[in-house]
Simulated assay, not measured.
Amino acid sequence: MIRIHFIVNPIAGHGNAPLTQEELQPFFINGVHDLTIKVSEYKAHATELTKASIQEKADIIVACGGDGTINEVATCLIGTDIALGIVPMGSGNGLASNLKIPKKRRKALEIIRNKHVERMDVGNINGRYFFSNTGVGFDASLIKHYESSEKRTILGYISACAITFRDIEKNEPLSITVDEETPMINPFIILISNSNEMGYKLSLTPKASLQDGLLDVLVIKKIGKFKMLWLGFLILIRKVHWLKESKSFQTKNIQLKCDDSEFFDTQVDGEHNRIDNNHLNISLLEKSLCVLTAK
């Protein structure tokens, strides 16, 4: 018997299409697959449910939600032989897209049933895991403002962008050092990627791979408003390297130090994360997570 547990975030993707036993049953075989659905009710509840599923000897644990839900579930499975399945139900679905898991639920469930397992790399930032990317600068501030907004819509996202642009202009100068090199004042973005997508098919690191044993790092120095608009266009066409203020490289480890603050505002897989330390140690755990993908 193959025990498959589905951890469902009911509000992912505006909560319009919850997963049910009736929907799952046609894709699996009675007597072969034992299906369990668990619904998360609050932040970090998916982690608790996943830990319980591990104790219940689940063979496959499926994260049904966006990148935040996937992070909570996958974090518990690192270093185990339990396979992570994904049913993309969020807005961005960056990791699922990188793994070529379709948003069409029927096709995602077929991947879970077919049980093709691969191993992928996992990032670590000061003890917290990330699977797609982490970073500081504009994207971290944007997510911070978006999460604090009551408008989880495109209008809320635009409003968060406007606030973030305003803050860039009025913030006190911030000096950040990357791997002991010359400090940068108010860098626009420092993005460390494990995957080649951030969601919505957008990418700042299009050559990143989940299985190459390396992190892809993009550093963009402070830029003006015109260059920000140019950067937005370059992101759309996946040509960020055309921006002369950008620098890209690959590494297994990277350290960031903030000279003017006792904490870092970061984003981890698209969620705001404040780290009460002025040092960030970011590293890679090679092939440490089993994940179900299309063949």
Rank of each mutant, 00 (worst) to 15 (best):
E169Q: 09
T266H: 07
D265H: 11
R113K: 12
V8Y: 10
E150P: 03
L280K: 00
L289Y: 03
K225F: 13
H116K: 04
I60W: 05
S288A: 15
I37L: 15
V87P: 09
I29C: 09
S97D: 13
N133A: 15
N9L: 07
I86S: 00
E172C: 05
R166I: 08
S149M: 05
E118P: 04
L174S: 14
G270W: 08
Y157T: 05
K227S: 12
I86W: 02
S132M: 15
V136Y: 06
T20R: 08
D265E: 14
L236G: 06
T69L: 05
T69I: 09
F6C: 06
T293V: 03
T47P: 14
N98Y: 12
D139C: 02
N124H: 02
N278G: 10
L229Q: 12
K207P: 03
A208E: 03
G224M: 08
N281M: 01
L142R: 00
C161A: 00
L204W: 08
G224L: 01
L191C: 13
S193H: 04
L84S: 10
P18D: 02
A58E: 03
G13E: 01
E56F: 02
H116Q: 04
K151Y: 03
N16T: 14
D121R: 03
S209N: 00
A108E: 09
N71C: 01
M89I: 01
N16A: 11
A12G: 08
I112V: 02
K257H: 08
L174T: 14
N126T: 12
N30G: 11
E48S: 15
F28C: 04
G92A: 15
L142T: 05
E23A: 07
G85C: 02
S248Q: 07
N281L: 00
K51Y: 10
G13H: 02
G127K: 11
L289P: 13
G65L: 15
V39M: 14
L95M: 15
K170A: 11
K170P: 02
A12H: 07
K222W: 02
T266I: 06
S195D: 13
M89D: 06
I154A: 09
E48T: 15
G270K: 03
N273K: 04
N124V: 06
K225C: 09
A63I: 08
T69Y: 00
G90Q: 03
I2S: 09
E22W: 05
E197V: 03
C76S: 13
W230C: 14
R105N: 06
V240A: 06
K151T: 05
A46R: 05
R238L: 06
S53V: 01
S91V: 11
K107L: 10
K207H: 11
G13Y: 01
N277T: 01
I86M: 02
I192N: 01
A160P: 10
E150A: 10
S283L: 03
A160W: 08
L204Y: 11
A63N: 00
F130M: 03
V122T: 15
K295H: 07
L229A: 15
D67Q: 15
N126P: 12
Y129A: 04
F226V: 14
H279T: 11
K247F: 12
K257Y: 04
L234E: 00
L35R: 10
I86E: 02
I82A: 00
R128Y: 12
